[in-house]
Design a protein around this nucleic acid. Structure first.
Length: 112
DNA sequence: CAGATGACCGCAG
DNA sequence: TCTGCGGCCATCT
């Protein structure tokens, strides 16, 4: 009972803010994984929280959350539009519906 | 408080 | 790359 809300109210604001900041910097035609983002934040165990944060993110932020996929290259279940958005940006897809991570996976090495 | 859920990850086959 | 199993953690019921 309201004991699960002992924190500020929602998940660490700093964590969510960092996630938004990273996702916002992802270039078109590239994709990244939840674990990679969590790892960049120094919390590889919070991979699930990244997905949770993106699901609760307000659309007013207009974040390219469709460029974030899981480690298997699988897209968001129930969000068929994501595949179309990535396809329009030039992201390659497998015949089974997975993303060509080996080719489109983005990381800071390319940004530098 | 306990149990179940989920836009996940890593490992093994 | 795919499937199955266990583990992590905030949120929901």
């Amino acid at each position: 009972m309201r004991d699960y809300k002992t924190n500020k109210g929602t998940a660490n604001a700093a964590f969510c803010q960092s996630v938004y900041d990273i996702v916002k910097e992802i270039p078109a035609g590239k994709v990244t994984t939840y674990g990679e983002i969590a790892r960049l934040l120094g919390q590889p165990q919070a991979s699930r929280m990244v997905g949770y944060a993106l699901k609760h993110v307000p659309e007013t932020m207009m974040l390219p959350c469709h460029r974030v996929v899981n480690a298997a290259g699988r897209l968001v279940p129930g969000w068929e539009e994501q595949r179309v958005l990535l396809l329009q940006e030039g992201v390659s897809f497998k015949k089974n519906g997975s993303v060509e991570m080996m080719q489109c996976l983005w990381n800071y090495s390319q940004l530098i």
